[in-house]
Structures are given as C-alpha cells and as structure tokens.
Design a protein around this nucleic acid. Structure first.
Lengths: 136, 136
DNA sequence: GTATTGCTTTACGTTTACGTCAACGTCAAG
DNA sequence: CTTGACGTTGACGTAAACGTAAAGCAATAC
C-alpha cells in the first residue's frame, strides 16, 4: 500500500525556480520579478535565490487572468490583498464584503460590454454572410 | 402632418465640437485628439476646426467600450478597420469572416476569464458571510 | 581550474496612453 | 479694439509595464 500522504506532502513542497514558473506561465522572468517589485507575489528565499511554491503559482495565475481582463497591476494587487486580508473581526468582514460588491459591479459592467461586443460581431458576421451569398 | 424626414435629416446633420463630444463621453479633448492621431476617428474640418457627426460618436463609443474591455488602442483600430473595410469581392469577405472568427475566440476567452472571476468572487463572499455568521 | 549555465541586483531604455504647457488663430461681447 | 472663450498645432512630461544590458555570485560540467 502506497503512502498518499507522502506524495501529497511532496506536491505541497514542490518548488520551482523563477525561470521555471516563468516558462510554465508563458512570461519572462523579468515579468515575474516586476510583479514581485510591485508586491503581487513574495516568494521565499533560499539564500539569495527565489523559491516559488504552489501558492505563488496560484497568485501568478490570478495576476495573469486579471491582466487578460485588462486590469492594471495596481488594481490586481488590491484584489489579491482583498483575498489575503485577515478578516478576524466583524468590522473587517463588513469592509471586505463591501469591496466584494464593488468588484462585482465592475466585473458585471465588463460582462455587459463583452456581450454587446459579441452580439455586434454576430450581426456583422450575418451581414457578411448575406453579402457573400448575394455574390453567388 | 409633421415631416419626419426633415427631423431625420436634421439629426443626421447635427454636429458637435471637440469639447462637446469629449464632455458627452466623459473624456478630455486631448484624448479625442489622441485617438485621431492614431487614426481611430477622422472628423471633418470646417476650415481648421474639427466637426464631429453621428458616425464619429458611434466610433468613439466603440473605442471606449474596447478600452473598458482592456484592448490596446492599436488593436481597437484594427477592429474598427475591420468593420469599415470595403468588402465588395468574395475574397475580401472571406478574409473578413476569418478575422471575425479570431475576434470571437478572443472575446470568448475573456468571457471565460470573467465568469471564472465572478464565480470565485461568489465563493469568497459566501465564505465571508459564513465567517461573519460564526461571530454572532 | 576554468568555462558554462543560471541565478542575482542595479539601472537605464521603450512603448502606450494620454497630460500639460506654450504659442498662436478666430470670433462674439463689451 | 481688446478681452475672453474656445479652437488649433507642436513639443515635452509622465505613469505603467515591462525589456535590456551590465556586472557579479554559485554550482555543475569538463
């Protein structure tokens, strides 16, 4: 009988170098370090070398998705901070919940824009297809 | 009996100054001129003064929506060009249709990202509400 | 041992998307 | 007729998001 606990531990303790995660996510190491400069990720150090773990990968994925959505890095940082912020007291939780509402409003505006753009694209394609039909 | 044709013509011929459309869309006149420098809009001139018409407003709306979606201005220009490109011949229409597919793929990726982000936000809010509940 | 490879920091360069003067033309109001 | 109010064209400034080049340490490869 194998010991899944051990492999789980091994997975959790798997580490990556800066070049490795950069390659994995299709960015340059310079980009990763830039995110660190801005405080979006904070890898451990073994001596002077950066050591990246699973949680760093999760963060990087969050950052890159935020970028695909067109958010500036500073705003992405506030989002990450929001997710990471300690929320032991009720007042802190209330604040976090209000922030969540703000973010949701933003995302839903984007979704409206996106759906509009897709609808327009559909109509435009339809017109093009009809034009093409008429040429035959 | 009123003459709707006249009011239609009047509407179509309504013009605006740079400051007016800028204010209407919540941007500065500098921004509008910047878009003109990049070839995203091309207002008429009465002498040296820019004269904006309905189609310029439509374009500006397109540009600003593109920006809210996080597209760079150069990419927005290619999109506008796509919509405006002459497509008399079949080969041109074929090309436009292929471009449409590319754009749709892009937009749908964004929608996936957006839906993921909204789902995460929902789950996070749920956790926060439960934490808040436990404090009572 | 030295050469290569990969990590590090420091620092300046670049592109995008405008902001911010400066200097000038023009037209209606006082 | 001059004073605003708005228009125009440069030209330079700036913030964000990295790119790039210089120079150094550290471990493995030969």
């Amino acid at each position: 009988m194998p010991a899944p606990a051990e492999t789980t531990v091994a997975n959790l303790e798997t580490t990556w170098t800066i070049r490795e995660i950069a390659d994995d996510f299709g960015v340059t190491h310079r980009t990763v370090r830039h995110y660190e400069d801005l405080g979006l990720i904070a890898p451990e150090r073994r001596g002077t070398t950066r050591v990246y773990r699973r949680r760093d990968r999760t963060r990087l994925a969050l950052i890159l998705r935020g970028k695909r959505l067109g958010f500036p890095l500073e705003e992405i940082r506030t989002i990450i901070d929001l997710y990471d912020r300690p929320r032991g007291k009720a007042s802190q939780l209330e604040y976090v919940l209000s922030q969540i509402d703000d973010r949701r409003a933003d995302l839903e505006q984007r979704r409206r824009d996106l759906d509009d753009a897709l609808l327009e694209l559909d109509r435009f394609e339809e017109r093009c297809r009809q034009d093409l039909e008429r040429l035959r």
